[in-house]
Design a protein around this nucleic acid. Structure first.
Length: 571
DNA sequence: GCCGTTTTCGGCCCGACTGTTTTCAGTCG
């Protein structure tokens, strides 16, 4: 799977081309192609073999040839040449907020800089403030930009960003003059990580709201403070943008501010073809300037003859074409979830008793939870021996006799050992209601071996779900590579579900693999991997991944009623 | 560099904020 490697190369080429005064549309073409590769649900090498590269949106004759060159030689001459032609300090300087290609080139040509560090020294010595278009203020801004670059995080996990977005909108809601308020951007699209938080407000009196915004307690730095648009950097290292528009522009502004950029560009292109223009204020007739829509998002999609596209799908990954044909999926919702299939109790490394978990799950309206404590070899997590497992199953049966309205399923999170065997006396497996298996060690074994381990677990007739298939932990452990095509194939053949682990640092399967699972007819189970009762709420993040993966209710195992669930999984 | 029942050439989304300017370029989203 070299999709991401090639996408990264195209993205880097776009950045390099930006410093060369290249045609901006050519630069966009590279970005669009990169994005297209990132959202691809198939292996690029397979597509190349079939000779259908040019069927990928944004890939034409030239980029297809470049992809083939990368696949066959491992290199791309055009990339190497481009990289050699641009001094490394220029793209490094462009990383500084406020410094773009032109400023970077100007600085390089004047001082022949080798690094951002050298630039910082010069700026501190007031050596750059006599260049054309650069005076003291710009010099200060460059220094501030360098500081920002050091302090700001690359991307923040959704699990951290969403609560901040909710808190900030909550605080601003009561500011004088606020009519409607929403967070937008990639947080609204529920992307797994976000670069910044976008907030939209409608009001006819923006100024006092803006002043309140930049004075909020979390604000560490004000990056821009205008009449209708401001940006701040929070103490947490993430940027928040606030935009205020008149109430009649709510829909258009929410659409614009939610993105994605590629989705908006595509919509605006459709409007152009119809003789109309879309901006953040509305849809306007290109000739008369007369307003045609914009108060609500729905009215804009309707005007463009598209069905309404939920934010999670707005990535220009085929959703606009589907909406034009009325073929959008009817996305699964949190309220469709009838139970949680991955929960830990104090029998292993969870904090609560099974009784407490059952009560909390009942409060959430669930019909069932599977208590899936770890198996014996996972010592750090207090894995259960066979004897303990038997006791635990007995406890669950007792609890089920006493409680009403919710069924506790006797489960296990079974370790898939490094040779692919299962960490249990297999005679015990039939006594369990549901068996979840997962890899917890040997992450560096390589693609082939890891794939074989998972496949051999799936082939066991008692294993129902493979949990967190790639074992990634955002920010600390990358996903290992797997042959997903093979895994999906065996999963379908053996009636094994793959998990979307809803724990915010995992979200594994991710959106793209979830979509591919659906396309290949593999069932998906969403599990919260709860260790503390509050984490049951993480189910919402798992549902978000499912929605971003185009999943419908029927694609998700734990939307089934208990009797249907038990009938559907293998025994 | 892509794309096309209007086009194989000539389009390609659109606007806010800032600083250095005296009308605009650069940057950002």
């Amino acid at each position: 799977m070299r999709n991401f490697e090639i996408a990264a190369m195209f993205n880097e080429m776009a950045e390099l081309l930006e410093t060369k005064d290249e045609n901006p549309f050519k630069i966009r073409a590279y970005r669009k192609a990169a994005q297209s590769l990132e959202s691809l649900t198939k292996d690029i090498e397979d597509i190349a073999k079939q000779g259908t590269l040019q069927e990928i949106p944004g890939i034409g004759r030239e980029l297809a040839a470049k992809i083939e060159e990368i696949i066959s030689t491992g290199k791309l001459k055009a990339y190497e040449k481009l990289k050699k032609s641009i001094p490394a300090a220029i793209p490094d300087m462009v990383e500084i907020p406020g410094v773009g290609p032109n400023t970077a080139k100007l600085l390089y040509n004047k001082f022949k800089l080798k690094s951002v560090g050298q630039l910082e020294k010069l700026a501190k010595g007031h050596k750059i403030c006599n260049l054309p278009n650069i005076k003291e203020k710009t010099e200060e801004n460059i220094l501030r930009g360098i500081e920002l670059l050091k302090r700001s995080k690359e991307r923040m996990p959704l699990g951290e960003a969403l609560p901040i977005a909710i808190e900030m909108t909550g605080r601003l809601r009561s500011a004088p003059g606020v009519e409607r308020i929403n967070y937008a951007g990639s947080v609204r699209r529920m992307k797994e990580t976000v670069h910044d938080i976008d907030i939209l407000i409608t009001s006819s009196k923006p100024k006092p709201i803006m002043d309140a915004f930049v004075a909020l307690p979390r604000v560490r730095d004000i990056l821009a403070h205008g009449a209708t648009k401001s940006s701040v950097l929070l103490k947490e290292g993430i940027q928040v943008d606030l935009r205020i528009v008149e109430p009649e522009s709510y829909g258009a502004a929410l659409l614009y501010f939610t993105g994605s950029k590629q989705h908006n560009i595509h919509l605006r292109g459709i409007a152009n073809d119809m003789g109309y223009k879309i901006n953040e204020y509305g849809v306007f007739n290109g000739k008369t300037g007369k307003r045609a829509a914009g108060e609500e998002e729905e009215s804009i999609y309707k005007f463009l003859k598209l069905s309404y596209i939920p934010p999670e799908l707005r990535e220009d990954a085929g959703e606009i074409e589907a909406a034009a044909k009325g073929g959008l999926p009817d996305l699964v919702e949190l309220k469709d979830i009838r139970g949680d299939l991955h929960v830990h109790s104090e029998w292993s490394d969870g904090a609560h008793s099974i009784k407490e978990l059952a009560a909390a799950a009942g409060k959430r309206g669930y019909e069932y939870i599977a208590v899936t404590d770890h198996s014996e070899s996972l010592k750090v997590a207090g894995g259960l021996s066979g004897v303990e497992l038997k006791e635990k199953i007995k406890e669950i049966r007792d609890i089920n006799r006493k409680i009403k309205g919710l069924t506790v399923l006797a489960g296990i999170e079974l370790d898939i050992l490094s040779d692919g065997s299962l960490d249990i006396d297999e005679a015990l497996l039939p006594e369990l209601d549901i068996v979840v298996a997962a890899i917890h060690s040997g992450f560096k074994q390589g693609k082939e071996k890891l794939t074989r381990r998972i496949i051999s677990a799936m082939k066991n007739k008692h294993v129902n779900v493979i949990a967190h298939p790639t074992s990634r932990l955002m920010g600390s452990r990358d996903a290992y590579e797997l042959d997903f095509e093979e895994i999906f194939k065996v999963a379908r053949e053996t009636n094994t579900a793959l998990e979307i682990n809803a724990y915010p640092d995992r979200l594994d399967l991710n959106d793209i693999n979830a979509r591919r699972a659906k396309e290949t007819g593999v069932a998906v189970a969403i599990g919260s991997d709860t260790h503390v009762i509050g984490q049951l709420g993480n189910m919402a993040f798992g549902v978000a991944v499912a929605r971003r993966g185009w999943l419908e209710k029927k694609d998700v195992l734990n939307t089934l009623a208990l009797d249907k669930l038990l009938k559907k999984i293998k025994k």
